[in-house]
Each structure stands twice: as C-alpha cells, then as structure tokens.
Amino acid sequence: MDIALQQLVNGLTVGAFYALIALGYTMVYGIIRLINFAHGDIYAAGAFLGLSLYALLALLHIQNPVLTTLLALVVSMGCTGLLGVLLYRIAYRPLLHARLSILISAIGGSLTLEYGLFLIYSPSFLVYPHLFGRAGPALGDLAISWLQVIIFVSSLLLMAALYVLVHRTKIGMAMRALAINQDAARLMGIDVNRVIASTFFLGSTLAAFAGVMTGLYYSQISFLMGFLVGLKAFTAAVLGGIGNIPGAVLGGFLLGILESLAAGYFSSRWKDVVAFVILIVILVARPRGLLGERVVERM
C-alpha cells in the first residue's frame, strides 16, 4: 500500500509540471489552432532566466532563500511571458492564416530558443543552487518533501487563478470569444491581436514557473530540457481535450500518474508505450479527449 501511495505522490509531482506546461499548449491551441512547438523551450528559457536571477541576487548578497526564490520566480515569469509575446509577434502573427507554415515557423522558433540558450548559457548541464533541503511532513515511510508540497499547491493555485481569469474577467471573455469564432469576435470590437498576445504571455508565465520549480526540485537544467517535457505536456493537453483548461490540468496529472504506475508496476522501458496506447484508446473512444468540447473543424 505504501508503495502505491508513493507512486501516486511521484505521479502527482511529475503531473504538476506536465499540467503547468500543458496549459500553455492548450490556451494557444484553443485560440489560434497552433501546436506551439516552441512552448517546451519557453519553459527551458524560464528555468535559465531563473538561474540568472539567483546568480545576480547572490552577487548582491541577498541570501534569504525564500526572498530570492520569490524574486527569481516573479522576474523570470515576467521576462519569459514577454519572450512568449515576442515569439508570437515575430514568428506567428504574420502566419496566422497559413495553418501549416506556422507549424514550421514554430519549429524554427523552437530551434532558435534551444540554440540561443546553448550559446548564451552553456552546452552542458547547469545546476541550480540547493536551497531547500529534503525535509518534509512525517508520513510514515512516505518520502515527500515540503518542496513537493509547495509545487503541488502553488501549481493548483495558479491553475485556479487562470481558470478565474478566463471565466470571470473581460480579457478572459475575449479569449473565449476568440476561441469560438475569431471573425465574430473581431466584429464585436475585440482587439484580436492583444488578446492573442496576452494568451501567449499567460502560457509562457506558467511555463516559466514550472521551469524555475524544475531547477529547484530536480537541480539540473539544460538547453534541451524542454523537448521531452514539451512533448509529454502536449500529449497531456490532447488527452484532456485540447483547448480546454481543466482538461489540460486533468490530462497533466493523469499522464503523470499513468507513467508512474506503468514504471512502478510494469516496466520503466515501456512506460511511454503504455501512456501512448492509453491515449490512443481514449481518443478512439472519445475523439475529443476527456473534457473536450465539440469544435468546428478547420484546416
């Protein structure tokens, strides 16, 4: 039983990262029907910016781990959000009506970000400061750290905040309107460009949060770190029903738990196969994902 509980904790931790990144995929997809291949690399950029912040604060002799972490998070999230907007402006905006060409532009953006980090920072792995120990709540044999608890809780809070923003604010309403019908939204006087840009900003901010947390929790970051996680997060977004915000969260946690159980009870070598087979089965049974709504087909 202990083992099963531990695997659940493992899965929820990985799932939190998937969910945070999946939100960026799902929001952008919901609005402009783009699989933003560069989103995983935005997450990596967030992690690197966070590391720069830690280095800068250390130079300024600001040592308090909580204070430095909050500063690193806020600044990295802000800068990465702007990076996302910049990417949209340069690489995506002129191609909004070329559905496949924009995909190649996204791949170009992904390579540019990856090898930009490669050149600016390092081709090798960089290590975050070991700020938080592995102390945690005493729960018998269960290994769980306070940092894990913080990651889990704060990502849930961020997701809830995003949900409120999309469903209770004016810009959120504009986003939803855009997702349903861009032309109609424009006719209603919505500044389409600004709304798309804010979507990129929000998605990138969440990715940056995940990036800094990755550095703190796993301690190791590299310029290619966004690739595999990005692929998984995209899968999670589709699993939950792409374009759907609670769907991305559900998909993220579900994928994390599935992988954890597959590795724990079957085989780690086959866990991705297990995850993809389940994904395919779910999509065959529910072609729009778990929480996906009916959307008009557009090519």
Binding site: I90, S101, S105, I107, G108, T112, E114, Y115
Partner: peptide, 17 residues
C-alpha cells in the same frame, strides 16, 4: 543550429505558401 532555426522562420515569413 541557431542559424537553421532562424532560417526556417525567415523562409516561412517570406514564403508562407
């Protein structure tokens, strides 16, 4: 690889079709 990435974006912007 950086040049390749930038090249892809530029090519698409110049010739989206």
């Amino acid at each position: 690889m950086l040049a390749f990435g930038v090249g892809l974006i530029v090519l698409m912007l110049l010739r989206p079709q």
